[in-house]
Design a binder for these strands. Structure first.
Lengths: 234, 234
DNA sequence: GTGCATCTTTGCGCCTTCGCAACGACATCG
DNA sequence: CGATGTCGTTGCGAAGGCGCAAAGATGCAC
């Protein structure tokens, strides 16, 4: 918990078009919290007491089945809002949010949502736009799961992570947070075994380099061919 | 195209808490259109010129892959809004909407969205709540596709259709619009062959009765057991 | 009433993917 | 620096579900 300087959030598209005084007023209602790696920011089914803006780090949003299987709904990067169930008329969080690395996030009490979105229409509009984008992304994922083979789905998932958090290194583009085979499996609806086999095969072909909780894409273009099924079967 | 009487929409939750004069003003900007069975209300990639409210009938929202495969995103029933891409900051429709039966829908030009939602906050709020619900529903679907076998997915899909449009008959609960094996396959990410086999097996067990483009659920409770995987393998 | 288009059923072989199991590698911590 | 736990790899067998193909049903149009 602590003060937040306006400059930390002034550049975010989320707050585009809001005057400095407005930002200060928005921030006045927020509190900043640090979350240790692997801790939960909120949990599925829990009362939705707040919504969040990630300032630093990476969040993994996970939905669990009654049988205890987990599915990764999405990753959140710095600058994105999350836990906005409250903004959408829900009273409980539909998923659990884990800090993938040490994170810092702002939070506002749910009760402030209507107030903020009314007072700063562009903030509301930007948020809804984000929700709309996520709905489309999720539909895309449904389509992928319905029509593609595992190999394509995993390739697509990696490419999406690259887009979101790719970081250039001298070997290629690195996914900028620890991610295991199991994690990738939970994003794509397969098993860690199958993911491991795929990554091994791709590494042999020189598409990627990977290690413990680490994936670097060496040849994004070829990976894209795989994702589109234009790659000959091995 | 034509006039719409206020009474047609006054009872909808979407317009709850809006005065009669407000409704009239909302309707003044709308136009009513009839769509013949199997016609498209709008098409994927098309400019999002309007958003819609279904007054009567059933709509199938379909997303196509570049390879021409189709996935049913959802069914829309009377009273629901659809084509609200515009409300979410998109400029094109992300999917195609087909009239499953003869339909009647109201439409408003996209440009009216901001005006209406500003003037009638509860209308805006209800719409966003709907979007939130759909996002959750879609996530649920992702989880199902990631963790369940085809049999469970198909059972879940049928149960969802029952919930949405089930109509009691003397044989059981009927899905109230024509739906083919192919349609069910496109909802669940499988093939019409597999769906046909499943329905046949369920019919033998007395769970359902089905015919050409028609499914009646005789024993919803047992179907729920199948959906939850609590049914012994055949 | 007859013909045609569409939808449905069902058999069979194959292939992708899973499940299980065992082993190997790497990092961390005391 | 060695022990321990977590994560990754890989082999093998099983099977769920797909693809293809052909035949059977049903409703609609003329």
């Amino acid at each position: 918990m602590g003060r937040v300087d306006r400059s930390l959030i002034a550049g975010l598209p989320l707050f585009a078009g809001i005057a400095p005084e407005g930002l200060d007023r928005i921030l006045a209602g927020a509190r900043s919290t640090r979350y240790a790696k692997d801790s939960a920011i909120f949990e599925q089914e829990e009362e939705a007491h707040a919504f969040f803006l990630l300032l630093d780090g990476h969040i993994r949003v996970v939905r669990s089945t009654p049988e205890g299987q987990q599915v990764i709904v999405r990753y959140i990067s710095a600058g994105e809002i999350f836990g906005i169930a409250s903004a959408l008329g829900r009273t409980t969080y539909p998923a659990t949010a884990f800090a993938v690395v040490d994170c810092v996030a702002l939070s506002w009490p749910t009760s402030m949502w209507s107030e903020l979105s009314a007072q700063f229409p562009s903030f509301g509009a930007n948020t809804y736009k984000t929700v709309g984008t996520r709905l489309q992304d999720t539909h895309t994922r449904v389509v992928e799961m319905a029509t593609e083979q595992v190999e394509q789905r995993v390739a697509h998932a990696l490419l999406r992570l690259l887009e979101q958090t790719g970081k250039k290194t001298d070997e290629g583009i690195l996914i900028d947070f620890p991610i295991s085979r199991q994690d990738i499996a939970e994003m794509t609806g397969t098993t860690l075994h199958t993911v491991s086999r795929l990554l091994s095969a791709w590494e042999d072909k020189g598409l990627i380099r990977s290690g413990r909780q680490k994936v670097t894409v060496v040849d994004p273009h070829k990976l894209m061919l795989v994702a589109n099924g234009r790659s000959e079967r091995s």
